[in-house]
Simulated scan of single mutants.
Amino acid sequence: MSTEKVAKRLVELCREGKYEQAQQELYAKDAISIEPKEMAEGPMGNAKGLRAILDKGHQFMEALETIHKNEVSEPVVADGWFSVAMHLDATMKGRGRTDMREICVYHVRNDKIVQEQFFYDVH
């Protein structure tokens, strides 16, 4: 599967809210997830390996109360890399409504995502 096909499939699944399916289907077993340095530590921080990435996703989904808007841009692809902009307007348990916007950059090798990195302002 080319980088472009991986990117389009990730966008398709994320738009449907099928984040875990995207990770199971498209991520390498040894993939890494990188958050901004202010968020790197802790349960929602950096993760190494698909199992840790899935666990991080479960924790995030459990923290959601209501999703009001979920938008994912078309991917921008360059060789083995692609990026998308994501926008999630959600009510978080115990925190209220939050409007999250980020740029997500992915590295694809051997038809699998081997790295994801998120760029967003920490408020």
Rank of each mutant, 00 (worst) to 15 (best):
I34Q: 00
M44V: 11
K56P: 02
T98I: 11
L50I: 14
A63F: 01
G96W: 03
A7H: 00
E74V: 08
H123L: 12
D30L: 03
E25C: 03
K37L: 10
Q117K: 13
V11I: 14
W81C: 14
E116R: 12
P75W: 02
S73W: 00
Y19M: 14
M86Q: 06
M44C: 10
Y120A: 10
E74C: 06
A28S: 15
K29L: 15
A90E: 04
M92L: 15
N110Y: 06
E4I: 13
A63Y: 07
K112N: 03
G57K: 04
I34G: 01
T98F: 04
V72D: 02
K18M: 08
L10R: 07
K5H: 06
R15P: 07
Y27P: 03
S83E: 05
M100P: 06
V84L: 09
A78P: 03
R15K: 11
V108Y: 06
K48F: 02
E20F: 10
A52H: 01
T98S: 03
A31R: 00
M86A: 10
T98K: 09
D121V: 09
R15L: 14
S83L: 02
M92I: 13
K37Q: 09
M92W: 08
V6Y: 02
H68P: 05
E25P: 04
I34S: 01
E62Y: 11
H58E: 14
S33I: 00
I32F: 09
R101E: 09
D121L: 12
H123K: 11
E25L: 06
A63R: 00
K5Q: 15
V76H: 13
L88S: 02
E74Y: 09
I103W: 03
M44G: 07
V72L: 05
E16K: 14
P75S: 15
V105E: 10
M61K: 13
T98C: 04
Q59E: 12
F82L: 07
I67D: 02
L54H: 05
R101F: 07
A28Q: 06
F118W: 02
T91W: 04
E12Q: 10
P43T: 14
K37C: 04
E102S: 12
D111S: 09
L50R: 13
M39E: 13
Q24S: 03
L13A: 07
A7T: 02
K112C: 04
P36K: 09
I113C: 00
I103K: 00
E74T: 09
K8M: 10
Y106M: 00
L26R: 04
M100D: 02
E65H: 15
K5R: 11
V105I: 13
R51P: 06
M39N: 09
